[in-house]
Nucleic acid binder design. Structure first.
Lengths: 195, 195
DNA sequence: CGAGATATTGACTAGGCTCAATTGAAGTGG
DNA sequence: CCACTTCAATTGAGCCTAGTCAATATCTCG
C-alpha cells in the first residue's frame, strides 16, 4: 500500500513500472476500486483538495513509483506557465476519465461494461508498445467486478460467455482478444444504431 | 444550454443564481446526468484537458452565470500562488466528488442512492442559508434517475415509499424532510454495522 | 504437500427495468 | 374561460439481469 485514505497529502505519484489500483471506502465499510493505473499514469490527484487522500493506493504487483512532492510541483508551475498548464490539463483529464466511468456504471449493462473495460485496457497497452491483443490482467476478478460495479461471479461468467462467443481467449489472467470489432459492437448496441 | 459537449473550451462558469445540470453523452446516444450545480458551484472543469467540453451544461431554471475565461485564470494563477493553489484544490475536489458518485453508482442499492442524493442536496442548501429540510427540486424524476443510474419510475416509487415510511413529504417537486436521521440510517445499513 | 487465495459453475432469488395505462399540472389558443 | 395539447409523475403487472448462496476446481506459495 502506497498511501491510505485519510493520509495527509503531500505528493502525487507517477508509476515507473508495475501496476496499482485505487480504492475508495465508504463509511459503513463498502469498498470500490476507483481505478487501475499502469506505467506513466498518476496517482493521488484526489488528495490536494482536502489535503488528505480520499482513496487508498495498492500495488497489484512489484511496482516502482516516482514521488512528486506537491509543493515542488506548485513551484515549478509558478516558474513555468507551460508546466502549470500541463498540470491543470492532467487534473481535468482525470475528471473526464471519471465521467466515462460514471457513464459506464450508470448506463451500461454487464456485458457492455466488461467489453468497455477490456477495450480500454487494450488501448492503454497499445500506447505503451505492448500488444493490444494479448496481455495479462494484474487484478483479480473481484477487483474488476468492484471497479465495474458487478460481482466477481458475474465477471467470471462473462469471461466464459465471451470465450464461447469467440471474442477472446482467457486462461486465468492471460487475455487474448480474438475479435476486437466484436467487442466494440457490444458497446454500441443498446444505444442508437450506427448510421 | 450554456455549452455543449465538443464545444471548444475557453472558460469555466460560476453559477450566480439558478441551477444547472451537466450531461455526458455516449457514442450510441445513451446520456447520463453527471451533476447538478447550484449557486456558487463551478461548471466546465472537464474541458481544459482536451480543450473541449466533454459534457453539456443545461439550465434547469432561469440562471445567471459568471464567465471565467481560462487564460485569465491561468494568468491570475501565475501572479498569485495562493490563487494557483485554490484552483488546483477546486479541480481536485471535483475528482473527489466524482469518486463519491462512483461509489454511489457502484455499490449502493436504489434506496440508498436516493437517500444519499437527498442528504447531499440538503447539506448543500444548508450551506447556502436555505432550510436543509425544505426545498424545491429543480430537476425532473428522469434527471434524478439518470444521475443515480435508475429509471424515473424507480425514483417515483421510492419517493412514495419514503413518504409512506414517514421519512419525508413530497408534493411534485417540493420536498420536506421529516426524518433526517432515518434517511441517514438507510445509508449505513448494508455496510458493516457501526461499532 | 498442504493451506489459503482465486476462479468457475450451478441453482435460486430479488431488485429494478420494461411496457402500459392513468392522472395531474402547466401552458396555448380560440 | 375552457377545451386541447404536452410534459411530468404515479401506479401496476410481469420479466429479466445480475446478485446471492453454495459447492467445487485450480493456482500459488511457503
Amino acid at each position: 500500500m502506497l498511501f491510505k485514505a485519510g493520509d495527509p497529502f503531500h505528493a502525487i505519484y507517477a508509476i515507473r513500472s508495475g501496476c496499482m489500483k485505487s480504492v475508495v471506502t465508504r463509511k459503513g465499510g463498502a469498498e470500490q476500486v476507483s481505478g487501475f493505473y499502469m506505467v506513466g499514469e498518476l496517482l493521488g490527484l484526489d488528495g490536494m483538495g482536502r489535503g488528505r487522500y480520499d482513496c487508498s493506493a495498492i500495488a497489484l504487483e512489484d511496482t516502482v513509483v516516482c514521488v512528486l512532492p506537491f509543493p515542488l510541483l506548485e513551484q515549478l508551475a509558478h516558474e513555468r506557465p507551460s508546466f502549470q498548464h500541463r498540470l491543470y490539463a492532467v487534473l481535468s483529464r482525470e475528471i473526464s476519465r471519471n465521467h466515462n466511468v460514471m457513464l459506464l456504471l450508470g448506463t451500461m449493462r454487464a456485458e457492455e461494461r466488461l467489453a468497455a473495460f477490456l477495450l480500454s485496457l487494450s488501448s492503454r497497452f497499445a500506447r505503451r508498445d505492448h500488444s493490444p491483443f494479448e496481455f495479462a490482467l494484474r487484478m483479480t476478478r473481484e477487483d474488476i467486478g468492484s471497479y465495474l460495479g458487478l460481482t466477481l461471479e458475474t465477471i467470471s461468467r462473462l469471461f466464459g460467455r465471451f470465450r464461447n462467443a469467440g471474442l477472446l481467449e482467457i486462461d486465468q489472467r492471460k487475455v487474448r482478444i480474438r475479435d476486437h470489432a466484436g467487442l466494440k459492437a457490444l458497446l454500441s448496441e443498446g444505444g442508437a444504431p450506427a448510421d
